[in-house]
């Protein structure tokens, strides 16, 4: 997929675990894991808003567009 989720990078920068983020954002670990692994098909604005608020970052820090290599 062309859009890459850099959630693990941001978590490492903030020295935060996925469990901690899950508790603060109110999203289950399994859903956050799907997002982290890049298996999610879509992300709600409310989810993005909550993650950005907790991680003190911009949506662009979590999502990155990389063109597919042919």
């Amino acid at each position: 997929m062309a859009v890459i989720v850099n959630l693990d990078v941001m978590l490492a920068k903030r020295k935060m675990s996925l469990t901690e983020l899950s508790e603060k954002v109110g999203i289950t670990m399994s859903n956050l894991s799907i997002l982290k692994k890049g298996k999610a098909k879509a992300i709600r604005f409310s989810t993005l808003d909550a993650i950005c608020e907790v991680l003190q970052c911009q949506p662009g820090d979590i999502l990155e567009y990389r063109p597919n290599e042919k």
């Binding site: 999203i27 859903n31 956050l32 799907i34 999610a40 098909k41 879509a42 992300i43 709600r44």
Partner: peptide, 8 residues
Amino acid sequence: KEETELTI
């Protein structure tokens, strides 16, 4: 259904 389930 899959799309809804994989929407976080």
